Computed example of a mutant assay.
Amino acid sequence: MSQESESVTSSVSVYIPILYVAVLLTTLVLFSIAHRRKKLDKLVSMRPIFAENYQKEMYLQLKNATEPKVNDKVLKAALIRRGAEAIRRMIKLKEIQQYVKVLYQKGSIGDDVYESFNLQSKLQELELNELAAEAESYKKGWAQTFFPVCQEVTINEALRRRLNSLDPIKETLKHQLVQT
């Protein structure tokens, strides 16, 4: 017996693989856009660790003021105040960095708080880089002396706050001594 073998041929259009790849790429692009939007919304909704940076806002307002031309000395002083605030914030972040890591490893704080802390650290580093560029724009090589000056201003402000916090204690001790 002889069997006849019939071959079945199917005609597949060239457009079907192209259509498949197009649908696949479109799906991946849409997923990527949705994922980025979700990630951006999450970053925007995070509560910042620090309050608003008024020194930065003041410096930017002075720098962008056009009607009464602001003196360069005033701009430099505002930049130093902005730098002092940035250094104060960086010091605070460095102080609590170890505690945040330990609390995160133990599970005492969530991913959102840990990510917020890391984001704030990155933002402060960018702020310091921006400050160095601003200092260099005023005078070449000023960034090397700019940060020590800002650090000194930060230390002086901290000492002033501590001394001012002692005044109420001093007054209560005076009243206690007078009453006895």
Rank of each mutant, 00 (worst) to 15 (best):
139 K>E: 14
88 R>A: 06
60 L>V: 12
124 Q>R: 01
75 L>V: 02
150 C>R: 00
99 Y>H: 13
11 S>H: 09
123 L>C: 00
64 N>W: 05
136 E>C: 04
93 L>R: 04
45 S>T: 08
70 V>K: 01
156 N>W: 08
110 G>K: 12
163 L>A: 14
170 K>D: 09
43 L>W: 09
175 H>I: 13
125 E>S: 07
32 S>K: 14
150 C>L: 02
53 N>K: 00
99 Y>A: 15
60 L>K: 14
106 K>G: 12
165 S>H: 13
67 E>V: 13
3 Q>A: 11
33 I>D: 06
52 E>Y: 10
127 E>V: 05
38 K>A: 11
93 L>H: 05
40 L>I: 15
175 H>Y: 15
8 V>E: 00
36 R>P: 02
20 Y>A: 09
65 A>K: 06
153 V>E: 11
75 L>R: 03
9 T>M: 07
116 S>A: 15
50 F>Y: 10
43 L>N: 14
128 L>V: 06
65 A>Q: 11
117 F>T: 01
4 E>F: 07
146 F>H: 01
114 Y>L: 10
147 F>Y: 07
126 L>S: 13
92 K>Y: 05
76 K>C: 00
129 N>M: 07
141 G>L: 09
79 L>W: 04
67 E>M: 08
143 A>Q: 10
154 T>S: 15
151 Q>P: 02
154 T>Q: 07
132 A>H: 11
15 Y>F: 15
61 Q>D: 12
160 R>K: 15
100 V>T: 14
113 V>T: 11
52 E>N: 07
109 I>A: 02
145 T>Y: 08
117 F>A: 04
4 E>G: 04
37 R>K: 14
146 F>I: 03
100 V>I: 15
177 L>Y: 12
3 Q>L: 08
88 R>Y: 00
161 R>W: 05
17 P>Q: 06
156 N>S: 12
41 D>M: 06
3 Q>Y: 05
127 E>D: 07
142 W>G: 00
101 K>F: 03
29 V>D: 05
77 A>V: 07
75 L>W: 02
127 E>T: 03
110 G>E: 10
138 Y>G: 14
147 F>I: 02
12 V>P: 00
148 P>F: 06
170 K>H: 10
81 R>W: 04
56 K>I: 05
171 E>T: 11
97 Q>V: 02
110 G>A: 10
53 N>D: 15
108 S>M: 12
62 L>R: 01
130 E>R: 13
146 F>K: 01
59 Y>M: 04
24 L>C: 00
179 Q>H: 02
